[in-house]
């Protein structure tokens, strides 16, 4: 089973995000970066497929500045076989279409039975790259996936996905693009031997020119701002439960007018 896993390096969820003074983006100094949590599920699932079929390969594909190598290296330490790092100034902070275009071009230069993406990256929160990649490669997509069963002949998969208020089970022909959702699995930690081995695993660096693409941005952002400041309201301390319950319920009705 050959899996291609698309991976993005993002600020750790503990990060306090600050907007830069001219509002053109966020302050990046001091940020600790990690693998996008949804992409970790993808790495884990690809590793499990390789283990199940006792053959194959897990190929990591990432777009990002130099630091993204660390995220690829972490996935290699988890057990992935090799990496492709698309590093190109013209692709930094790109919109989902440009990213999907670059991923598609890179995917076209590799062999795969299945492609995994996180269902969204927790930095820009677009959640579009996976479905766009599928469309650009003319492949089926199954998004928000929580369970994957590949048929022994590797021609199709039975996949469970989250839908509003429930679950959908679908049968999808391979190759396809799946986007990983929480619940898919519990990602493993990199072992010490894994970390040592990862240092020798190959990471192939590519530029936009290597992929034969010249990105044309589709979206533009500006006027970054912090969320409206929320301040503590009324605090009820040391009151008897029936009294405080009455006071708060009345306030929700008469003051906040939300019930």
């Amino acid at each position: 089973m050959k899996s291609l896993v698309c991976l993005k390096q993002v600020p750790d969820t503990e990060t306090q995000i600050k907007v830069n003074p001219d509002g053109t983006g966020i302050v990046t100094e001091g940020i600790k970066y990690v693998i996008n949590p949804y992409d970790e599920f993808s790495v884990e699932e690809a590793l499990r497929l390789k283990e199940k079929f006792k053959a194959g390969e897990v190929l990591i594909l990432s777009i990002g500045p130099d630091r993204a190598t660390e995220a690829i290296r972490t996935a290699l330490a988890m057990g992935a076989d090799k990496g492709i790092h698309i590093s190109d100034e013209s692709l930094n902070n790109s919109d989902p279409f440009v990213i999907a275009q670059a991923l598609a071009a890179a995917a076209a230069q590799t062999e795969y039975d299945i492609i995994f993406c996180g269902h969204r990256a927790i930095d820009d929160d677009f959640g579009e790259a996976g479905a766009m990649l599928a469309e650009l490669l003319k492949l089926p997509q199954v998004t928000l996936v929580t369970k994957v069963d590949i048929a022994d002949d590797k021609t199709k998969a039975i996949v469970e996905r989250d839908v509003e208020g429930g679950k959908e089970t679908v049968e999808v022909p391979l190759p396809c693009v799946l986007t990983s959702q929480k619940g898919l699995n519990e990602p493993r930690y990199a072992s010490l031997p894994g970390i040592m081995k990862a240092k020798k695993k190959p990471i192939d660096k590519k530029t936009a020119a290597d992929l034969g693409i010249s990105p044309e941005p589709k979206l533009r952002s500006n006027a970054y701002s912090m969320p409206p400041e929320r301040t503590a309201g009324k605090k009820f301390e040391g009151m008897e439960p029936p009294d405080v319950a009455k006071a708060v319920v009345q306030a929700l009705r008469n003051e906040a007018k939300v019930i």
């Binding site: 995000i17 927790i122 820009d124 952002s221 006027a223 970054y224 701002s225 912090m226 969320p227």
Partner: peptide, 11 residues
């Protein structure tokens, strides 16, 4: 963005 840790205007 960042789950609401900041906002931006997009076109």
């Amino acid at each position: 963005m960042y789950a609401g840790k900041c906002y931006a205007e997009w076109t």
